[in-house]
């Protein structure tokens, strides 16, 4: 296959970026999208041009490192698929591809296609956990959990923290990400004691990081590589409202 790539190049956080065009020849439909970029980069290095920086690690769709916009769609055209698991057979020979980084106030660009997603870590630090110290746990089977609850908690826990939901949202909202963690822990008995504080603290951290509000566009769900449902956002809204009844002074 032969493709024409338009790639966002930006030297560092402070620099101005721009789209640059490259030809990608000798591409096999069996290559992954990142392997295609590898091939382009090998060529760039040989000709003396800086290779395109992009984040990646596991290349199995689970670490959440990778993620670019391909023709305006987070993680590209294939449903339920991260950029690293996207294969070139999803494209046509001769196609033009526009490859850009996630764009959101909460995710500043560090270089080319690499963005800073540390805001997600800070949101988790605000409450995305159960406060249990090592060594104090009871026997794992002491509290049975309804299978359907466990499965639903799992569906939310599958979030890989890639940030596609934010990138796809016109408000750059992180609601799907936050709701996945709040949803997981509110469905499990272990999450009950801190349930309300968790919802309040994580939502407030999300706002502090500069992410927008949810206006029910459903773009996040459409691009989520783990198919996390916006039902969790509805659940988060209920959790949040209940919590503000207990803590009326909590920041909105």
């Amino acid at each position: 296959m032969k493709l024409k790539l338009h790639v966002w190049r930006q030297k560092n956080k402070a620099a101005q970026g721009r789209m640059v065009t490259y030809d990608a020849d000798n591409i096999s439909p069996n290559m992954s999208f990142l392997e295609m970029l590898d091939v382009v980069n090998e060529g760039l290095i040989t000709t003396g041009e800086d290779p395109i920086a992009f984040a990646h690690d596991c290349r199995e769709g689970i670490c959440g490192s990778c993620g670019v916009m391909v023709n305006g769609v987070a993680h590209g055209p294939q449903d339920a698929t991260t950029t690293c698991q996207l294969h070139m057979r999803s494209f046509q020979d001769g196609e033009e591809l526009y490859i850009e980084p996630w764009r959101a106030k909460g995710f500043p660009v560090l270089r080319d296609l690499v963005v800073d997603r540390s805001a997600f870590d800070r949101i988790i630090q605000a409450g995305g956990f159960v406060s249990v110290n090592t060594g104090s746990a009871q026997d794992a089977n002491a509290t049975p959990i309804r299978k359907s609850d466990a499965d639903e908690a799992f569906n939310a826990a599958a979030c890989i923290g890639c940030g596609a939901c934010v990138a796809a949202c016109k408000n750059a909202s992180a609601m799907l990400f936050v709701s996945a963690k709040v949803g997981q822990l509110s469905l499990l008995p272990q999450g009950q004691p801190e349930r309300q504080e968790r919802a309040l603290n994580m939502v407030s951290a999300m706002h502090e990081e500069g992410f927008g509000n949810c206006t029910n566009q459903y773009e996040c769900e459409a691009v989520c590589p783990k198919q996390i449902s916006t039902d969790y956002i509805a659940r988060l809204n209920r959790e949040f409202i209940k919590a503000t009844l207990t803590y009326p002074d909590a920041k909105k």
């Binding site: 956990f129 159960v130 249990v132 746990a137 794992a140 049975p144 299978k147 466990a150 499990l188 272990q190």
Partner: peptide, 14 residues
């Protein structure tokens, strides 16, 4: 296993 369940790790259940 006890510790992980206490943290809210959603292991498979019957």
């Amino acid at each position: 296993i006890d510790q992980c369940v206490a943290q809210g790790v959603p292991f498979a259940r019957e």
